[in-house]
Design a protein around this nucleic acid. Structure first.
Lengths: 141, 141
DNA sequence: ATCTTAACCCACTTTGTCCCACTTTTCATA
DNA sequence: TATGAAAAGTGGGACAAAGTGGGTTAAGAT
């Protein structure tokens, strides 16, 4: 179970240290891919979660499903974790997510997300306390 | 069942002693998360209560529900209780709740709340006797 | 052949974990 | 009610791990 947000830094070689708490969930290899949606970030899957993800995508019953499959597969990249616990993030993916030095690694249960720090802060601050409370009321919590 | 308010202190390493009366309800590990709402504090769940909480969140039927899910998941952090009964509160969560040395740990049935002491005192003193009585009348108690 | 890029290795700083110790409070028993 | 023992709350040192930076070599491209 991937949880929490971690403020890490990309070094000049494009390497990123994954949070130590994620090491158990990821094995030696992970899959990095482009996120869907407006807010562009990177998704990081363990091999088993990646399989579960691609299985789901393949079951899509819409006409442009092959485009969707292509989007995620061509954007995907296998990365091995080095002795320091880091992965290399290819240039094209760094460009996609607009990553520079300061990044946030966020755990979202089955996958991790890698964000440009400014983007992350902006995205999270959009979610006002009011909206959260509205959701909580709906849940009767 | 978590009850009562306890005035404890965060040490220089960011450790907090949980009230001994809560030890039974929490096991060896707890989940700390950001609260919802304007008054920012931290929530502490036992693992079983956390699962019940995430199950409910996933049932949300609002457009920005995935943002809400992400808010609570990325705001969450697993913490193990050390031999002295303390947990480490990560820097980002301490910042969120504005915690410094003096904190209040409050029991709220299924979860505990961790407050900056000044904030806690201010929040509780806002709640006048009149407001409480109005609520009681509504409940027909 | 040369230049760029990725993999590997080593080193440093900061942070977290573990352990022990001290003080205060609580509680049972004399 | 006095008193000793146990538990609760707090502090800090030592060590291990996490996070970061950089140099060197091997592989691939131009």
């Amino acid at each position: 179970m991937l949880l929490g947000e971690y403020y890490h830094s990309l070094d000049t070689k494009g390497r990123l240290n994954l949070p130590s708490k994620f090491r158990g969930d990821f094995g030696e290899t992970v899959i990095i891919t482009k996120s869907s949606g407006e807010k562009k970030c990177l998704w990081v899957f363990s091999l088993s979660e990646w399989e579960a993800f691609t299985d789901k995508i393949k079951q899509l019953k819409i006409s442009y499903s092959s485009d969707i499959v292509r989007y995620f597969l061509t954007g995907a990249n296998e990365a091995t974790i080095d002795k320091q616990g880091r992965i290399m993030i290819p240039q094209n993916l760094r460009d996609f997510a607009g990553l520079d030095k300061e990044v946030v690694v966020a755990g979202v249960l089955t996958k991790a997300e890698i964000w440009n720090k400014e983007k992350y802060v902006a995205a999270t601050s959009e979610l006002t306390g009011e909206k959260i409370e509205e959701a909580m009321r709906q849940l009767e919590l």
